[in-house]
Each structure stands twice: as structure tokens, then as C-alpha cells.
Design a protein around this nucleic acid. Structure first.
Length: 238
DNA sequence: TAAATTTGACCAGC
DNA sequence: GCTGGTCAAATTTA
């Protein structure tokens, strides 16, 4: 649609500024689609989220570890995974430009849930976040992400492309998620850290909100680029 | 006022 | 002694 808009304004008496804006819009959409379709892996094989010494402390949380790489299209933060996390620490990591944030399950004390996760902005690409899960959620939270296998850990918005599936087989997932709210829970990002946690679960990619849980990503993308159901009636009514 | 975040301190592995 | 992970008091937020 952006391309069509751009093409439609080229040979008309459209102000140059408007044409330029349309061009930028088309380019921006192209970049977004490319990012959505890419595996978003700026560090193939890096596995940077994995601590060097996983057996440093013999806790129950060391039993299950899952690494997820979340691509954020905006310079804000990764999307929440639908579970309730409480930040309990942040550390500057040697050699890493961004600090690592430590989260544990909100119900750790009330329900004894030992799930933890570490979130760190990728060094090579600030729009990517390495999220490492330790342990499983034993509380009653919906198994949005942490309780599922890597193959099952796909957002409702869509599923990974082939490259991402390959990455998923390596325990790393890439998915294009557009943050809904700003966040500052991880590195010196200025917004209060509470904004992420307090919105936990509100994004709903695990709850079936948005474009649907079973829709193929390409189909969703096609639907998005060529709306036939949701927008067409409204367009006709205009 | 309860709940969550921040952040310096502490602990343990290497 | 260095580093990563966690604790807990202080602070902030809703």
C-alpha cells in the first residue's frame, strides 16, 4: 500500500515534501517487512545470553534454560512474554555495552515459583534483546512462553520464518514484535522500569489477542498488506 | 499504602 | 581478586 501510495503521487501535482514523505514511508515499511521476515540474528552462533558459568550456583532454576532473542522494531524494549516478572537486580557485564537485568517470578515467595530470566540488550544490535530463561514457572500463570518448548515458543502475532525456525532449533528464537509501551527496565533507559512489569500480560501475544494465534505469519503479513476482511467494509463505507 | 524498582553490598565460583 | 548472581534497604509509583 505504501508503494502504491508512493507510485500514485509520483506523476501528479503533489508537493515535493509529500512525495518525499511517501517515499520514506515506503522505505520504512520495506525495512519493517524485511526485519519481520529476517531471522534478526545479528550474532549467529554467539549465544551471548548464556552465562559462562551456568553451574556457578546449584539452584533449582538451573534445570531449565531457554534462550530467546527478541527483536524490537523500536528503540524501546522487548515485548513482555505474558508472564509476571519482578526485577530484582541489574549488573554491568564485563565487555557488554549494556547491563543485564535480572527478573524472577512475581509469585516466587507466595507460590514458590523458581522461574527467573535475564534480559540483556544485544551488543551488535540495540534493537535485539537476549532473554535467557532459567527454570520453569511452577505457579499458575498461563504457560505463555517459559513452559513451552522452543518450537512452541512462538508469539500469537506470527511464527518464525525458516531462518528463525533454524535458530529455534538452536534454542534461539527471533520474532518481530512491536512494543506497545515504552520500557526502561534493562539498561539506563530513562523510562521507569515499572512500565514493563506493570504491563506484564497486557500485550497478549500469548493470550490470543491481536491478529490471532493460529494464523500463519505470511498470511498475516499478506492480510496486513492487503486487508480484505477488517478494513474493506470500512473503506467502502467511506 | 502496597507493590514494584533501584542500587549498593554481599556471596560464591573461577 | 574479579565477576556474575542475588539480597535487601531505600526509593518510587499507582
Amino acid at each position: 500500500m505504501a508503494r502504491e501510495l508512493k507510485a500514485s503521487v509520483v506523476d501528479k501535482n503533489t508537493p515535493a515534501a509529500a512525495r518525499e514523505l511517501c517515499g520514506e514511508l515506503a522505505a520504512s515499511v520495506d525495512r519493517a517487512v524485511r526485519l519481520a521476515g529476517s531471522n534478526g540474528n545479528a550474532n549467529p552462533g554467539k549465544n551471548s545470553g548464556q552465562p559462562r558459568n551456568s553451574s556457578r550456583k546449584s539452584t533449582a532454576a538451573a534445570k531449565v534454560r531457554k534462550q530467546v532473542r527478541v527483536a524490537s522494531m523500536q528503540d524501546t524494549a522487548p515485548l513482555d512474554d505474558g508472564l509476571s516478572w519482578r526485577k530484582y537486580g541489574q549488573k554491568d557485564i564485563l565487555g557488554a555495552p549494556y547491563p543485564r537485568a535480572y527478573f524472577r517470578c512475581t509469585h516466587r515467595h507466595t507460590r514458590g515459583c523458581q522461574a527467573t530470566k535475564q534480559v540483556q540488550r544485544a551488543a551488535a544490535d540495540p534493537l535485539l534483546f537476549d532473554v535467557v530463561y532459567h527454570g520453569d514457572h511452577t505457579c499458575a500463570q498461563a504457560p505463555a512462553l517459559s513452559l513451552l518448548s522452543a518450537e512452541q515458543q512462538r508469539p500469537a502475532f506470527g511464527r518464525e520464518d525458516q531462518g528463525s525456525l533454524a535458530a529455534a532449533s538452536e534454542g534461539i528464537l527471533h520474532w518481530p514484535l512491536e512494543p506497545v509501551t515504552p520500557l526502561g527496565a534493562i539498561d539506563g533507559w530513562t523510562s521507569p522500569a515499572s512500565s514493563w512489569h506493570q504491563h506484564a500480560g497486557s500485550y497478549g501475544y500469548a493470550a490470543g489477542a491481536g491478529l490471532g494465534t493460529d494464523m500463519d505469519f505470511e498470511a498475516q503479513l499478506d492480510e496486513f498488506l492487503n486487508p480484505t476482511q477488517f478494513f474493506q467494509p470500512e473503506i467502502h463505507s467511506l
